[in-house]
Design a protein around this nucleic acid. Structure first.
Lengths: 333, 333
DNA sequence: CTGAAAGCGCTTACAG
DNA sequence: CTGAAAGCGCTTACAG
């Protein structure tokens, strides 16, 4: 049986340093608050014994677990990579551990997972959630919650400002001579889908273009592929999709159908996911600073841990921007 | 201040059910071991109080944390997505929590992270590690370790059998008339790089082909791109790369240089990462059952928790296979 | 089958 | 500044 000779405890240190265990605890927990010589002695003993605090033992009396849950709908969705990484790094930096949980796009799985994980975390970040506003509010009563890309009354959030990137994109299309464009929508219930559409519409109308909202089945490659026929039917020369996955699906379907991008049709995605520049032509997309958003989500959560009140906090608005690549070009005459 | 009225404890349940706390503990921990009526009473009370065990309190006396660390070099590397997901699902299924840690390709960061996380986990899976064999062995003394895609004496591992996919791939190239091929190598220190090269060489030689091993700077898009010149210089008609990322970099550089794939050059990658079919032509690749490997890594770890001895375990060999897409074609005459 | 008690490794008022 | 003690919420021999 693999047995690590039981790890050293503060009692071992106390014995070695000739002090009381409580002194050891203080020396290790609040540096500078006790006699410097004593502290040095304790630290020396701790090092000698290769001591590491037992986080579980510490969590019991304090109630602080020093871990954060990060919920995503689908770990394999590339949108989350950078989000998770940003969060991971920000958490590690302050000694917090990040637990990544996957809801598999199911609100039932999400609830069950949260239920299981909640007792062992100090708070949760909902990277993408299938929960209803009510469920989120209820969760927020139990432990601090930070929402990413979504807004619920009374709950903290980090949401990028979609408008700059969208304004750029629409302007870009207008400059290229496009008059009639379309938006291939994502999930109707998605907060960010609505936000994107609203900005898109406003900007297009302001620049004198028409814009058609085209529905889709799912925000995936397949969904984008499936929307192609409707995009064609709409008779537009340029299309913006809810996300890159859809844009790539659309692009491939267009190519397969003999429609050349961008000569016949310009395409712009959202997110700048991994692989969005693998396509031919590489995809133009509206980029979100995902890693920063992830980091900011944990920072926001951390702040809420020490907040006096229950006031929700809102991440300083991260900003989107257009990444021009090869899938946009002059409108077909 | 957000205060959840303190969570119910087994004492609350005990009071409500009119039994001793230890009875509550037993009822909840080992169903069926106590009087059925008592157990029902306890369960009823627990439900009524919306009780959830405090995992930290439970971990203290038992020493079992029910969490597993999964270390990867880079969260944003698509190779890890499926690996992580497989592990995540397998862990959740048995009530274990997975903590994903990132070494950022640095053995120092890796050691520090492991150091920080080790006390709170029951074992660790090294998805990709920069640690030396010695460091891994030392780690394995402290907590059970399972290696993915690497072998170290005395340490459990899950390693796919590369040979079937490679045999298929080489045969495929031979059938297409290729006589001279190359392998763009990954990190020299990588166990799996060596394994892939060995199989490749053996198969190529057996089929009467020549095969050149071409070095690279890094197993990335850039690395693949940077290897293009050397691939050309080698005068081969087909090339296999250490991974898809390199294959894609190579493919794009080839296209940019006016070398048509697969007409002028056939390319095969490894891993079937997300986005490997976004390219034009879509990349042919040797696929690894990553999700299964991830799941198996946690299963192996779980087994080692209950093993009597220290005998290392080896995952039942998962198998690779060739995924033929568009980047391979007839050898140029 | 079930109580009563000790203990897991820490933290933190409370004294001095 | 530092001891001595109680307590965090559980589990588990030990009795009965």
């Amino acid at each position: 049986m693999r047995v690590n000779e039981k790890a050293a405890t503060i009692y071992d240190i106390a014995k070695l340093a000739g002090v009381n265990p409580s002194t050891v605890s203080r020396a290790l927990t609040t540096p500078g608050r006790i006699n410097a010589t004593t502290e040095a002695k304790v630290r020396e003993a701790a090092k000698q014994l290769n001591y590491r605090v037992n986080p579980f033992a510490r969590a019991l009396p304090t109630g602080k677990t020093k871990t954060i849950a990060f919920m995503v709908a689908d770990i394999t969705n590339p949108v989350f990579f950078k989000l998770v990484r940003g969060a991971e790094l920000a958490a590690a930096e302050v000694g917090y551990t990040l637990v990544i949980a996957e809801s598999q796009e199911s609100s039932l799985v999400e609830s069950a997972t949260l239920e299981r994980i909640l007792p062992s975390v100090d708070g949760v970040i909902l990277g993408t959630t299938r929960l209803s506003d009510e469920e989120i509010s209820a969760l927020n009563q139990q432990k601090p919650v930070v929402l990413v890309n979504r807004k619920v009354d009374g709950v903290s959030d980090v949401v990028p400002d979609n408008s700059p990137g969208i304004a750029e994109a629409v302007k870009h299309l207008a400059d290229l001579g496009h008059k009639h464009i379309a938006f291939v929508a994502g999930p109707a219930a998605s907060w960010i889908n609505t936000d994107r559409w609203n900005h898109l519409m406003k900007n297009a109308v302001e620049l004198g273009m028409t814009i058609a909202e085209i529905s889709s089945n799912e925000p995936t490659l397949e969904g984008g592929k499936g929307a192609f026929e409707r995009v064609r039917a709409a008779g537009v020369t340029a299309v913006v999709t809810y996300n890159d996955l859809m844009a790539i699906g659309l692009l491939r379907e267009a190519t397969a159908a003999g429609v050349t991008v961008p000569t016949d049709l310009s395409i712009i995605g959202f997110d700048n996911i991994f692989g969005s520049d693998f396509t031919n032509p590489p995809l133009s997309t509206i980029e979100m600073p995902l890693q920063k958003i992830g980091a900011e989500a944990v920072e926001t959560l951390l702040k809420s841990f020490v907040a006096e009140d229950d006031e929700p906090m809102h991440g300083t608005s991260e900003v989107t921007s257009l990444l021009m690549r090869g899938s946009t070009g002059k409108a077909k005459a």
